[in-house]
Design a protein around this nucleic acid. Structure first.
Length: 322
DNA sequence: CATCAGGGCCCTG
DNA sequence: CAGGGCCCTGAT
């Protein structure tokens, strides 16, 4: 696959709502790595396919948590019009969750005996989608019933067959494909990429996206229960995936209905120092953060994975099967 | 070498 | 509502 070089660039500055924690938002250490994005402290690169254009985004932190400011450079192959950029900006504001106000949460729990230390450490951290809904669904499917290594392998195999490589700002990254493209290949061709039974899930929802039966933009305006209902209709999306979607992709901060087995094991150790605590008890633990149950979960969860970058946590390593 | 479970979900009974 | 099957892999 030939690498497409992106030479044209358009820079601009955008201001997120305060508090906004650049590094904790653009980089989620609990996520598995994907070649469509890369993070360094204060910097982030991601690819995007938007209105037929393959874009490279370089995003830099130029502010602070209290006074956030972000510099964006959009790289492209062809010159982009002003109207294109004008329409792109609101999408970036959504994808990187620049407008959601979480100051009430940070204020309320900064002295909390459980959450206080996490809020102090990660003030301004919130969910960000970064990818489109379609791309996120692909990621959630490769996550299912697989170890990290295999999830990475499946996604990279898919990139190789269906995606593109672009080079900008000295980074070579993958770009996702459009649903139409995945819909046009056979189930067997997908299976050859070692995605197993997931092939039929991919085919199924790629077709729905290609036929415009799913509209991400109207979903964003719907209530949590409506989104849940719509997403559960998708073949291959069940309770665990929907739980993640509601928070990470639709930004419902209170969405905590189920705790999947892997999360259950890790939270049991982390919060209760026990092998296995019932999901009911774990859910009850988060009840005190009314309206912010999942955001509270996120602070505790990501903090653990940030810690993992610097210290060796034996029991955690055993749960993260590579 | 064989067996098994894994960061679920679907389908059946 | 419980439980088997699904794909592929690495661990045992």
């Amino acid at each position: 696959m030939a690498t497409i070089i992106l030479n044209k660039k358009i820079p601009f500055t955008i201001i997120p709502k305060s508090p906004y924690n650049f590094d904790a938002n653009f980089y989620k250490p609990s996520h598995f790595p994907s070649s469509d994005n890369v993070w360094e402290k204060g910097k982030y690169w991601i690819t995007m396919i938007w209105q037929e254009h393959k874009l490279g985004l370089k995003i830099e932190n130029k502010g602070t948590i209290e006074k956030p400011k972000i510099k964006v450079i959009v790289y492209s192959e062809n010159t982009l019009s002003e109207t294109f950029i004008a329409k792109l900006i609101p999408e970036l504001r959504w994808r990187f969750n620049l407008d959601q106000d979480i100051s009430a949460f940070c204020e309320k729990y900064k002295e909390d005996k459980i959450l206080g230390k996490f809020v102090k450490k990660w003030k301004g951290m919130k969910p960000i989608a970064a990818n489109s809904l379609y791309e996120t669904l692909i990621i959630y499917i490769v996550l299912q019933n697989a170890t990290v290594r295999r999830s990475v392998q499946m996604l990279e195999n898919l990139f190789e067959m269906l995606g593109y490589k672009i080079k900008f700002d000295n980074k070579t990254l993958s770009v996702f494909w459009k649903p139409e493209k995945m819909n046009s290949v056979s189930e067997q061709e997908l299976r050859d990429l070692k995605v197993g039974y997931r092939a039929k899930f991919f085919k199924n929802f790629s077709e729905q996206f290609a036929n415009k039966e799913i509209d991400e933009f109207s979903l964003r305006k719907k209530s949590k229960e409506e989104v849940r209902k719509e997403m559960l209709k998708l073949y291959g999306i069940g309770p665990a995936s929907v739980e993640y979607l509601l928070f990470e992709d639709f930004y419902f901060l209170d969405s905590l209905q189920t705790i999947p087995p892997w999360e259950q094991k890790i939270l049991s150790r982390l919060l209760f120092d026990k092998e296995l605590v019932s999901t009911e008890k774990l859910m009850k633990f988060f009840e005190r953060f009314k309206g912010f149950e999942k955001l509270a979960f996120h602070y505790v969860w990501e903090d653990l994975f940030w810690r993992r970058k610097n210290e060796h946590i034996e029991w955690l390593e055993e749960e993260i099967r590579l």
